[in-house]
């Protein structure tokens, strides 16, 4: 794909979250993931760009950005998990669901997707302790009332870890 040569993270994400997209465009979503993996500071830059899109007043743009985020968590590995697992990024998600920040102006669809993602990461990435801190803070605040049900295909773990067998 020759046209992809000059693409930046920002241009991939703009295409992947374009409000004019009729449906989620996986060519651009995967293009963004691949670009993250190619760049030295890909994860750091990507989470900043994603946070901005997730806070879009346009619901469809925000929903697509969350799909991109989910795809990155599945495809961009530990480097990306580390960036998502910092309060710097988690706070941007918290702002969207909290009525003290943007929550009153954001659709239920966007807020429930964020809560689903946070919860699924607390299960799939138990070592990322800040994700748990953020999620349980939302529970304490009454913003999350009960743990969402996560569809099996949405779980983050690509394949189950090998379990040592008892001899």
């Amino acid at each position: 794909m020759a046209e992809a040569e000059g693409e930046s993270l920002e241009s991939w994400l703009n295409k992947a979250t374009n409000p004019l997209n009729r449906q989620e465009d996986w060519e651009y979503i995967i293009g963004f993931c691949d670009q993250i993996n190619k760049e030295l500071e890909g994860p750091q830059i990507a989470v900043r760009l994603l946070a901005h899109k997730i806070q879009s007043p346009q619901e469809w743009e925000a929903v697509q950005a969350l799909t991109v985020l989910e795809a990155c968590m599945k495809n961009c590995g530990q480097r990306f998990h580390n960036e998502v697992g910092k309060f710097r990024f988690l706070n941007e998600l918290i702002k969207v669901v909290s009525p003290k920040y943007l929550g009153d102006r954001v659709s239920e669809k966007v807020k429930s997707k964020i809560i689903e993602l946070l919860y699924s990461w607390t299960v799939a990435l138990p070592d990322e302790s800040k994700i748990k801190d953020a999620y349980y803070m939302l529970k304490r605040q009454g913003i999350v009332l009960s743990d969402p049900v996560i569809p099996a295909e949405s779980t983050l773990i690509p394949s189950p870890p090998a379990r040592p067998k008892n001899p």
């Binding site: 309060f87 702002k95 800040k130």
Partner: peptide
């Protein structure tokens, strides 16, 4: 060292 100071500056949003 940079990572340590980043860790110190990384706080949960006040609610």
């Amino acid at each position: 060292l940079g990572e340590e100071s980043e860790e110190r500056d990384d706080h949960l949003l006040p609610m």
